[in-house]
């Protein structure tokens, strides 16, 4: 079962980064592989054109009535523009997850826990930059602890074409592993002020 009664999530980035697929995987994991409810909506407005892309998922232990995300508990950003646009909407005490090479944060909002992952670089290590969304999804799974990793892995497997399964599952595990290592380190050392990541900026 899901851990929380209701969680609102927004995932945003550039068109082509696989924002929608990442949201669909998370929604599918909750709704199909973990016995909860999920509603995903996408931004189809004019702002969805010209490079930006955004998707919203609501996860719940009960049927979801209101379909839109108003104040996300979790914001995942994969571009600076997405961060600038959506960070102000994040719920106080919420979680911010970012592609740390693509998003620069000057000041983390009060009470927000911010996690960073070099998802594009990790994806490139697998030989294909396109799977950065699934690396992000793995990292999301590890640091939010909302969903069972197995449920999300099954959702990844169920959401990509057969020829791409192996690569995407590797990408998921890579992000998950990176996030798990980070969480272990934080458990040992405690949170710091800035973005929580395994790599300290030079």
């Amino acid at each position: 079962m899901l851990q929380r009664v209701l969680t609102e999530i927004r995932i945003a980035g550039f068109g082509g980064q696989g924002v929608i697929l990442a949201a669909a995987v998370i929604g599918k994991a909750a709704a199909i592989f973990q016995g909860g409810y999920a509603t995903m909506t996408q931004s189809f407005g004019p702002e969805a054109r010209g490079g930006s892309s955004s998707a919203q998922v609501i996860l719940s232990t009960e049927p979801i009535l209101y379909p839109y995300v108003t104040q996300p508990d979790i914001l995942v950003v994969m571009s600076q523009e997405a961060y600038t646009r959506f960070a102000p909407q994040l719920k106080p005490g919420g979680v911010l997850i970012m592609e740390q090479d693509l998003v620069r944060v000057d000041k983390i909002p009060n009470g927000v826990r911010a996690f960073g992952v070099p998802a594009t670089r990790l994806a490139e290590q697998l030989g294909r930059k396109v799977v950065l969304n699934i690396v992000m999804t793995g990292f999301f799974t590890a640091v939010t602890n909302l969903l069972d990793a197995d449920a999300v892995r099954q959702a990844v497997d169920d959401s990509v074409p057969p020829a791409m399964k192996k690569l995407n599952l590797q990408a998921f595990d890579k992000g998950l592993e990176y996030g798990s290592m980070l969480m272990t380190r934080l458990a040992e050392n405690g949170d710091s002020e800035g973005v929580l990541t395994l790599e300290v900026e030079a």
Binding site: A24, G27, M40, T41, I64, P67
Partner: peptide
């Protein structure tokens, strides 16, 4: 309606 048409659920 657009909302139901573009909304993804189980």
């Amino acid at each position: 309606d657009e909302c139901v048409g573009h909304m993804t659920e189980k």
